[in-house]
Simulated assay, not measured.
Amino acid sequence: MPLLGLVFAASLAGFCALSLAMDRHSEDVFGRGHTPGAWRQWLQLGGTALLCLSLWASLEAAGGSVGWVLWLGALTAAALATVGLLSGLPHRFHWIASAAGGVAFLSLLFCL
């Protein structure tokens, strides 16, 4: 069961990191003139690593055939949540993204 939580939490944190690497979304969250700058590559790398972690967790949880479907479903749900957070709660976006990253990290520790 913790692997399923890891799949969604890592997907959400990954999409949040990738969106914060974009100038427009970073300005929406942190205010005008705040671009990721030097953090852009680290946010892109971290977001990609979190999405790969969610793929690994879904393949571990459900196997090779169903795991891909589980991962695509988690990606869809996380993408919709990211869009909803960016449009509805941009000032709390980075806190929710950090919480999702923390849940993903704790789930990973619990699974190992």
Rank of each mutant, 00 (worst) to 15 (best):
G33W: 06
E27S: 03
A97Q: 04
L106E: 02
L106H: 05
H91S: 14
L59G: 09
A57N: 03
M22F: 10
G64M: 11
A78F: 15
F93L: 05
P90G: 04
A97P: 02
Q44N: 07
L72N: 08
A99W: 15
F8E: 00
H94G: 03
M1L: 10
F15N: 00
V83H: 06
H34Q: 12
V7I: 10
L109C: 15
A10V: 13
L6I: 14
L109Y: 14
G101D: 01
T82P: 05
I96G: 03
A77K: 06
L106Y: 08
M22K: 04
F105A: 12
A57Q: 05
M1T: 03
L72R: 10
L45N: 02
C111Q: 12
L12A: 08
A57G: 09
L55I: 13
A10E: 07
A62C: 08
S58K: 04
L20A: 09
P36I: 06
M1R: 02
L86K: 03
A81V: 12
W71N: 00
A17M: 01
G102S: 11
P2C: 07
T48E: 00
G101W: 06
M1S: 14
H34G: 10
A21Q: 01
L20I: 02
I96W: 09
S19G: 05
S54R: 00
L51I: 06
P2E: 04
A38E: 04
V29G: 03
A81F: 05
W95C: 13
A74T: 07
S26K: 03
D28K: 11
L51K: 00
A17V: 00
R92T: 06
G102F: 15
A81N: 09
T76V: 10
A57D: 02
L70M: 09
G47V: 01
S19L: 02
S26G: 07
G73W: 13
V83P: 03
V69E: 03
A78N: 06
G37S: 06
L75C: 05
A21R: 02
S107P: 09
L18A: 10
G46Y: 05
A49Y: 13
A61E: 00
L59I: 08
L106C: 07
L106V: 10
A49H: 13
F8Q: 02
S107Y: 06
F15T: 00
L20N: 03
G47H: 04
L109G: 14
E60P: 14
G84D: 12
L106P: 01
L86Q: 07
S54G: 14
W42C: 04
L45R: 08
L51F: 01
L112K: 08
V29C: 07
F30D: 03
L3Q: 02
L108Y: 15
L108D: 13
L106A: 13
G102N: 07
G101T: 02
C16S: 15
G46C: 11
L3P: 00
M1E: 01
T35L: 13
M22R: 06
A49D: 04
L59A: 14
F15K: 01
L12P: 01
M1H: 07
S58Q: 10
F8A: 02
A57V: 10
S65L: 11
